Deep mutational scan, measured.
Amino acid sequence: SDIKVHVGDITVELHNVSEEFARLVEEALRLGLNEEQAKEWAHKALH
């Protein structure tokens, strides 16, 4: 599904992702990663 993740003043739109993936992206953003890094990190975490 499509999910918007908000962290501080950052909003990341995720398309066709699981809630778990979105949660991992949100966690990575909170750790200070940028959007691209957060998506990559979440992807690796799920595989």
Rank of each mutant, 00 (worst) to 15 (best):
E20F: 10
L24M: 12
Q37K: 10
V17H: 06
H47S: 13
E20W: 09
S1Q: 09
H15Y: 06
V5L: 11
A45V: 14
W41F: 14
N16T: 05
R30S: 09
E19M: 15
F21G: 00
F21P: 00
H43D: 13
Q37R: 09
L29M: 08
D2M: 11
L33M: 15
V12H: 05
A45D: 04
K39L: 14
V17W: 03
K44Q: 15
A45C: 07
E13P: 02
N34E: 09
H15S: 09
E40L: 13
K4Q: 11
H15T: 10
V12E: 05
K4S: 15
L14I: 05
G8C: 05
S18R: 08
E26G: 12
H6V: 15
Q37H: 09
L14M: 08
G32T: 01
H47P: 10
L14W: 03
Q37M: 13
E13F: 05
T11I: 15
H47V: 13
E13W: 07
A22V: 08
H43L: 10
V7Y: 15
A22Y: 06
H15N: 10
V5R: 00
G32P: 00
G8F: 04
A42T: 01
H43Y: 14
I10T: 07
N16D: 11
G32Q: 01
H43C: 06
E35G: 12
I3F: 14
F21I: 04
E26Q: 09
L29H: 01
D9A: 14
I3W: 11
A28P: 00
W41L: 08
K44S: 15
R23T: 11
A45E: 14
E26S: 09
K4D: 08
Q37F: 06
A38M: 01
E26A: 13
N16H: 09
S18K: 07
E36F: 12
E36K: 13
V25L: 07
G32K: 02
D9H: 11
L46N: 09
K4T: 15
L33P: 00
R23D: 08
V7I: 11
L29W: 01
E35N: 06
S18F: 04
L31R: 13
H6M: 12
E35Q: 09
E40Q: 10
H6G: 08
N34K: 09
K44I: 05
L29K: 02
V25W: 03
L33H: 09
E13A: 08
V7S: 06
E19D: 08
T11Y: 08
V25R: 02
A42L: 02
E36V: 13
L31M: 13
H43G: 10
A28S: 03
E20Y: 11
L29S: 02
V17N: 05
E26H: 08
A42I: 03
E35S: 11
G8P: 03
L33F: 13
L24S: 03
K4V: 15
E26I: 12
H6F: 04
G32C: 02
Q37V: 06
E35L: 14
N34H: 05
L29F: 02
D9W: 08
F21T: 02
H6S: 15
L14C: 03
L24Q: 04
I10E: 06
G32N: 05
G32D: 03
L14A: 04
V5G: 04
R23S: 11
V12K: 01
L46A: 10
L14T: 04
V25Q: 01
A28W: 02
F21W: 05
V12W: 02
S1Y: 07
V5S: 02
A42N: 00
K4Y: 07
I10Y: 08
L29N: 02
A22T: 05
E19Q: 14
Q37I: 04
I10R: 02
F21V: 03
V17D: 04
A42H: 00
L31S: 11
K44D: 12
K44F: 09
H6N: 15
V7K: 03
Q37S: 09
K4H: 12
E40G: 05
F21H: 03
L46Y: 13
G8M: 06
R23P: 01
S18A: 04
R23L: 11
H47N: 13
Q37W: 03
R23K: 15
K4N: 15
E26W: 07
E40C: 08
E40M: 12
A28E: 00
K44H: 07
N34I: 04
I3G: 06
E26Y: 12
S18I: 03
H6T: 15
S18T: 14
E13M: 10
E36M: 14
K39C: 08
G8I: 05
I10P: 04
A38D: 00
V12Q: 03
S18Y: 03
Q37C: 07
V5T: 04
D2T: 14
N16P: 03
H43E: 13
A38I: 01
E27A: 13
R30Q: 12
L31T: 11
E40Y: 09
E27V: 14
W41A: 08
R30M: 13
E13T: 14
L31G: 10
D9N: 14
I3S: 04
E20K: 10
W41R: 06
V25C: 01
E27T: 14
E19N: 11
D9F: 09
E36T: 12
V25K: 01
W41T: 05
E35V: 15
L46T: 10
L29E: 01
N16G: 14
E13I: 15
L29C: 00
E13N: 12
A45F: 14
F21N: 01
W41N: 03
W41E: 07
V5C: 02
N34R: 07
D9G: 14
H43I: 11
L24F: 12
Q37A: 12
N34D: 14
G32A: 01
E13V: 15
K39N: 04
K39Q: 09
K39M: 13
I10H: 08
K39E: 06
V5Y: 03
F21S: 00
S1F: 13
H6K: 03
A38F: 01
V5D: 09
A38Y: 00
D2A: 10
T11R: 03
I10N: 06
L14P: 03
G8V: 05
E35H: 06
G32W: 01
H47F: 09
A42W: 01
G8H: 07
E13H: 14
A28F: 06
L31Q: 13
I10S: 07
W41C: 04
H43R: 11
T11A: 07
E13L: 13
I10K: 04
I10A: 06
R23G: 11
E35Y: 07
E40S: 09
I10C: 03
K39G: 02
D9Q: 11
R23V: 09
L29I: 09
R30V: 10
D9M: 13
N34S: 12
E40F: 08
L31V: 09
H47G: 14
A45P: 01
E35F: 11
N16M: 08
L14D: 03
A28N: 02
S18N: 08
R30P: 00
E20I: 10
H15R: 01
A38L: 01
L46G: 08
Q37D: 14
S18D: 06
L14F: 05
A42D: 00
L46P: 03
W41G: 02
E36C: 03
F21C: 01
D2R: 00
A28T: 00
E27W: 10
E40N: 10
L24A: 10
G32L: 01
E40H: 10
L31I: 09
A22N: 06
Q37L: 11
V5A: 02
F21D: 00
E40V: 11
D9S: 13
N16F: 07
A42K: 00
G8L: 06
V25D: 00
E20D: 13
L46Q: 11
R23N: 14
L33N: 04
A38C: 00
A22F: 05
L24I: 04
V5K: 00
D9T: 12
W41Y: 15
G8S: 06
V17I: 07
V12D: 04
L14Y: 03
H6A: 12
E26D: 04
A22P: 01
F21R: 00
E36R: 12
A45G: 10
L33I: 05
E36Q: 12
K44R: 12
E40D: 15
H6I: 15
G8E: 08
H15F: 08
H43F: 15
E19T: 11
A42V: 03
L29Y: 03
I3C: 03
S1M: 08
A22C: 05
D2L: 09
N34G: 11
V7G: 04
T11C: 05
H47C: 07
E26C: 06
H47A: 15
E40T: 08
N16I: 05
F21K: 00
W41P: 00
V25T: 03
H15K: 07
E27L: 14
A42R: 00
E40K: 11
I3D: 09
V12I: 14
A42E: 00
G8A: 06
V7R: 01
S18L: 04
R23M: 13
L29Q: 02
A28L: 03
N16W: 06
K4P: 10
L33V: 03
I10L: 11
L24T: 02
I3N: 08
K39A: 05
H47T: 15
W41K: 04
H15W: 08
E20M: 11
V25A: 01
A22H: 04
L24R: 08
V12F: 04
H15P: 07
V5N: 06
A38K: 00
E35W: 08
H6P: 09
V5W: 02
A45I: 13
G8Y: 03
L31E: 10
L24N: 04
D9L: 13
L31D: 08
S1D: 09
H43W: 13
E19S: 11
F21Y: 15
R30T: 12
D2H: 11
D2E: 09
V17E: 05
L31C: 04
T11E: 11
K44G: 12
K44M: 13
E20H: 12
R30H: 15
L46D: 07
L46M: 13
A42S: 02
E13K: 02
R23H: 12
G8D: 08
S1T: 15
H6W: 06
L29A: 02
V25H: 02
A22M: 05
S18G: 07
A45R: 14
T11F: 10
N34P: 08
S1I: 09
